[in-house]
Simulated scan of single mutants.
Amino acid sequence: MRNTKLKMGMVGGGKNAFIGAVHRMAAGIDGQIELCCGALSADPLVAKESAALLGLPKERSYGSYQEMIIEESKRSADDRMNFVSIVTPNFAHFEPAMMALEHGFHVVLEKPMTLTTEQAELLQQKVAETGLILCVTYT
């Protein structure tokens, strides 16, 4: 059996973002996860600059989380991201998490998972429908 790393995509966490660096460090501790793609800022130029600084290939550097999720879902199962880590400001957790689940990706979210109970319940319903994993971390 071949030991392959889990492929992580990241939403948010670009240059000058403290929490993104923390999550990348934590994900890399055991050598079992690699950052394969990212939409690292709400500003497409900063997102691409950040991806270049992290050594991501241009074709895996996305200007928005919507673009990343759609393009990654088109890739073959052995090439696309396995899960997405969302490290955006708190108010921007729900939409990328829901879209990732809708496109078949597991999700890691920083706390708080959402700003409303209704949003949290909608994510919980989507997890129940899809069988995907939604993990909320506390850094």
Rank of each mutant, 00 (worst) to 15 (best):
M1D: 09
N3P: 09
N3A: 13
N3W: 11
T4S: 13
K5E: 06
M8V: 03
M10N: 01
V11Y: 03
G14A: 00
N16Q: 13
A17G: 11
A17Q: 15
F18L: 14
F18D: 09
G20Q: 04
G20M: 02
A21K: 15
V22H: 14
V22M: 14
V22W: 12
R24M: 07
M25F: 14
M25L: 14
A26D: 10
A26R: 13
G28C: 01
I29L: 14
G31A: 05
Q32K: 15
Q32S: 15
I33D: 01
C36K: 12
C36I: 14
C37P: 10
C37H: 11
L40K: 02
S41C: 03
S41Q: 06
D43N: 15
P44Y: 04
P44K: 04
L45N: 14
V46I: 15
V46N: 02
V46Q: 07
E49S: 13
E49C: 09
E49Q: 15
E49V: 09
S50V: 07
S50K: 01
A51T: 08
G55Q: 11
P57A: 15
K58D: 15
R60I: 04
R60H: 07
Y62L: 06
Y62R: 06
S64D: 08
S64C: 10
S64A: 12
S64P: 10
E67I: 05
E72Y: 00
S73D: 11
S76E: 12
A77V: 13
A77L: 10
D78Q: 13
M81E: 06
V84S: 02
V84P: 02
S85A: 14
I86P: 00
I86G: 03
I86Y: 04
I86L: 05
V87M: 05
T88G: 00
P89T: 09
N90C: 12
N90F: 09
N90K: 13
F94H: 10
E95C: 05
A100C: 11
L101Q: 06
V107S: 03
L109Y: 05
T114E: 03
L115N: 14
E118K: 14
A120N: 12
E121A: 15
L123E: 00
Q125S: 12
K126V: 05
K126Y: 03
A128T: 12
G131R: 04
L132F: 08
T139K: 11
